[in-house]
């Protein structure tokens, strides 16, 4: 199994919990968003428990950007050099 390197960027409450802006993570190449979220919950606690139990998707109160695109599904596989941003819905000015 090969590994890939991804970048995780944390904003707002996620940064408060992780106490960091950015981490580089080495993961196996069959890793999904769901796996990453599980790891983050284990490491940092429930702030990363952001799946809406009623839909199984990322809740509408949170924003996860995969290479800039907002995603809701968690079964998406992550590739080498992907950037994942953990944030909240604010935008527009």
């Amino acid at each position: 199994m090969t590994t890939c390197k991804i970048e995780l960027i944390f904003h707002a409450f996620f940064r408060e919990i992780t106490k960091t802006r950015k981490i580089l993570e080495e993961i196996s190449d069959d890793c999904t968003i769901n796996n990453i979220l599980t790891q983050l919950v284990n490491r940092y606690g429930n702030e990363f428990d952001i799946i809406d139990p009623s839909t199984g998707k990322i809740s509408n109160e949170n924003v996860i950007l995969l290479n800039g695109k907002s995603i809701r599904e968690t079964n998406i596989k992550v590739k080498d050099k992907d950037v994942l941003i953990f944030s909240l819905p604010f935008g527009g000015g």
Partner: peptide, 25 residues
């Protein structure tokens, strides 16, 4: 009770920058 408002109460509209200046908007 929205997460948006809780963030807004803490960082104000400056928080928008977190998203826009990481993505490129």
């Amino acid at each position: 009770s929205t997460r948006w408002a809780r963030a807004q109460s803490k960082w104000g509209t400056l928080i928008i920058y977190s998203n826009t200046n990481t993505t490129g908007l």
